[in-house]
Design a protein around this nucleic acid. Structure first.
Lengths: 330, 330
DNA sequence: CTGAAAGCGCTTACAG
DNA sequence: CTGAAAGCGCTTACAG
């Protein structure tokens, strides 16, 4: 079926060892022999079998990436940078969409351990969970694991966290500065990251609006759910004059809801999103957004993995500062 | 380092063969022996080495996916469905961002062949190229290759193509029906897919506006480039009262440009996008969009690969019909 | 029901 | 400079 080193050896009347040496560019091969073998290799489109090579070298040159749903654009960027960076260094990425149900995660981690990945990247704070910690200590106790926008304590786990807590506090401060009186917060699923945002909102409110009622609501991920949640919140609290959404995408839907209700943005209601994504730039009006530096988180993750793979030291937990990008909606 | 079948065999006082039989759930093992081995396997967190297994079984259970840039959301959906579907059947996906420069592609194809992938998915019409055809015939001549939204003739290549050509003709017809007199077309990079859209626009114009000047322009992918291209086109041809964009994302930027120019949509200028993506649903006004059924293309790709892997017949080339989703912008 | 042996495709000391 | 041999971790006829 496939052309092996032995086939080439036979054609060249040499041993497989010699062919192997040529394939791997080792010294100590007679130039003429080398030339002959090179020619044969090319003519036969010889390609080394990485599985066999990995077996003897004890290295797969593969890394695993776990993400709940690759369609959620906020982390697609991260996967892009990580793949590019690692690919340039000879690694291939095995990517799995794990879904949000914890009970399946252990299977993916076991699967990746069967494939002998050399590092694991967890995309998203959602993986900051006991299930994952245990699965890692069971199946991948000794390869570097990097978690993007999350952290848990384990000897081989490295966390990169966006400081969304303080970022959202600053968002509340911005609303205060803009003369808002009744800010509110609308979030989708409860991930550790969203939890931090919520805590940030509460802290910001305590600081800037100590006597104001806390308006925090949750909703699903679908267009309609977000839309309805916004409408419902406005009906329940007509005084609301500022909304912080846990993601730009939600805020973009929120802008629709506000437009349909004939509420002017920012005159009647100021709106802030989080992620500083395309949604923020494209929406009408453009959206003020908290840049949580997910780009930096991913780039750093890629660099950290590379550093760890080459035996360098990397800090176990890093906090990355956020920045508000002000646009028309505030 | 890792626990092998031999380690377990030693502990259980049996041969590796027997352990292997237990691991693989074969019959013909004494129930007591099986129980003892199972216990040992669990206690030691034994995980089979897939590389070794693949070497003897001549199967990697991996498939490759090539995409120019995973951040382009239109194909992220496809990767999601394909990964989910294949993952459920025991396959893992090796994903590479190849960039748009043809000269690197052959390296990725060779790399994937080294890893002995069992099928390859090419995401996007851009891979409909001679470079790819040759690389495939050289390095992956005998595994199924499925190309999403493209096709080229090779014994092991299967194409799924969205009928964007006729779809865009229908878009032009829609503009005609809505009383537009001067439609135009703005496209980004020249991929085979965009080329079909352009040809469709020209055919539609020939059919509905035989005496009208053809206004077709190109632009880059950046926000500013798209924005500026729209403004420039409107300045050069002030009569324009309809724009078809080659992608929703461009149309979303276009809506911004039109708003900034105080042109009403659809009263002054009707706008149509392509992809029927979130951009279309979220923009203000909502965007009429040609649904090119990329979802169906991906689902079918996943199913076709599974079918091919299990030895079934699959049609070499399928055309998938498009549909216009009318919204506020027309 | 179980084990010894061969083999998947490769690399690398070790001898020569 | 080159080859025979052992071994990476596994599976599977073949004997018993």
């Amino acid at each position: 079926m496939q052309v092996t080193i032995y086939d080439i050896a036979k054609m060249a009347n040499v041993s497989a060892s010699t062919v192997s040496r040529v394939v791997n560019n080792k010294q100590n091969v007679n130039p003429k022999t080398r030339a002959k073998i090179m020619k044969l290799l090319a003519e036969n489109n010889y390609v080394p079998n990485e599985a066999a090579r990995g077996l003897v070298m004890q290295s797969s040159h593969m890394i695993g990436i776990l993400i709940t749903d690759i369609r959620t654009t906020q982390h697609t960027d991260g996967i892009y940078y990580i793949e590019r960076e690692l690919s340039a260094h000879g690694y291939s990425c095995l990517i799995h969409n794990t879904g949000r149900d914890e009970s399946n995660w252990i299977n993916y981690i076991q699967l990746l351990s069967q494939r002998k990945i050399e590092a694991l990247v967890l995309m998203g704070s959602i993986y900051q969970s006991d299930v994952v910690r245990e699965a890692i200590s069971l199946y991948l106790p000794s390869i570097p694991v990097v978690i993007c926008n999350g952290y848990f304590n384990a000897p081989n786990v490295y966390g990169l966290v966006s400081d969304e807590y303080n970022g959202v506090i600053e968002c509340v401060e911005l609303l205060a500065k803009k003369g808002r009186k009744h800010p509110s917060f609308l979030m989708n699923q409860t991930t550790p990251s969203n939890e931090q945002k919520k805590l940030g909102f509460e802290a910001g409110m305590a600081r800037c609006f100590p006597n104001e009622e806390l308006i925090v609501q949750e909703c699903g991920n679908g267009f309609t759910e977000i839309y309805d949640a916004t409408i419902r919140m406005l009906e329940q609290f007509p005084k609301i004059d500022g909304i912080i959404y846990s993601e730009d995408m939600l805020a973009a839907v929120g802008l629709r809801a506000l437009a349909d209700r004939n509420l002017r943005v920012p005159e009647d209601v100021a709106v802030i999103g989080i992620n500083n994504s395309d949604y923020a730039k494209l929406s009408i009006p453009t959206l003020t957004s908290l840049d949580n530096m997910l780009y930096d988180v991913s780039m750093t993750a890629a660099r950290n993995i590379l550093a760890l793979l080459s035996g360098q030291r990397v800090s176990k937990k890093m906090l990355i500062c956020t920045e508000i990008e002000e646009r028309q909606s505030t």
